[in-house]
């Protein structure tokens, strides 16, 4: 038995005729924080959706806890999803429910706990993200960073084994960013969970992740611990880490020659 909670083997996926992933292999170890990095449009978020079973791969497989996700029926997928918590890019809080009800939502749906226990649990989760004082507010009254933290409290409401983060840093100020970084690490260690982060923020991710995958052109271009990657000589990794404008990832979208487009 390996120590891998999630294994992705030879995965290909695409929308319509367009191929997004051309044979991806990844392993996510129990108890670790792993990151999937890559440019915009490289299909990072899609990998999370494949793990959650919201879409099916063209070939290859994603297995969670030794169960192949796309071979489960709906009940099986729902059972797997109960082990997962996901933080969406903009939080995806239910706008018609208060902060309190948002965090209580998974508990109300999946457990028969009495109201006083739910209340204690919700306040504990909110306390963990530092927002116990905001439980009465509606999502529209929260700042971006606060909304993200409430969504995180909701994602961990049922103490999941796997926590997935879709662009957790997008559009946040540096302070909120630092708070979220800290939360991801502490929650992962406190809950004994396995975390997967999809992001393109180099500095933050390198500061706390255990293992990092670089996705480019539909394959895993590089992988390793932050230290190994920092030392990497691969031109793509260098370009990405040091945010250089031109390199293996070209500045220009492939196009006919400039002269012929301008009919010179």
């Amino acid at each position: 038995m390996s120590d891998n909670l999630i294994t992705i083997e030879n995965l290909t996926f695409g929308y319509g005729t367009e191929i997004l992933h051309k044979g991806i292999n990844m392993e996510f170890q129990r108890g670790k924080v792993s990151a999937i990095m890559g440019g915009s449009g490289s299909g990072k978020t899609t990998i999370l959706k494949l793990i959650g079973g919201q879409i099916k791969p063209k070939s290859g497989s994603v297995s969670v806890d030794n169960q192949i996700v796309h071979k489960q029926n709906l009940d099986g997928i729902y059972k797997l999803r109960r082990k997962m918590g996901m933080l969406f890019q903009h939080g995806a809080l239910f706008t018609d429910l208060s902060v309190y009800e948002n965090v209580a939502f998974p508990m109300r749906e999946h457990t028969d706990l009495p109201e006083n226990i739910i209340k204690d649990l919700v306040l504990m989760k909110l306390n963990a993200v530092g927002l116990r004082g905001a439980y009465k507010l509606m999502p529209t009254e929260l700042s971006g960073g606060m909304a993200r933290r409430v969504a995180l409290a909701r994602a961990i409401a049922l103490d999941p084994d796997i926590i997935m983060y879709d662009e957790p840093f997008a559009g946040l100020d540096p302070i909120s960013m630092a708070v979220i970084c800290d939360l991801i690490r502490t929650l992962n260690d406190a809950l004994g969970a396995t975390s997967i982060i999809v992001t393109h923020d180099v500095a933050e991710t390198f500061s706390f992740a255990d293992y990092i995958y670089f996705v480019a052109d539909g394959i895993v271009a590089a992988e390793g611990s932050p230290k190994q990657l920092m030392a990497s000589k691969l031109p793509f990794v260098k370009q990405f880490i040091h945010s250089e404008k031109d390199g293996p990832v070209p500045f220009h979208v492939s196009a006919p020659s400039y002269n012929s487009d301008l009919s010179l």
Binding site: G52, Q54, I77, Y78, K79, R81, R82, M84, M86, F88, Q89, H90, A92, L93, F94, T95, F105, P106, E109, H110, A151
Partner: peptide, 13 residues
């Protein structure tokens, strides 16, 4: 705003 997607990921139809 991905609320429906989030609900699906919480194993709620």
């Amino acid at each position: 705003t991905e609320q429906l997607s989030a609900m699906e990921m919480m194993a709620v139809n």
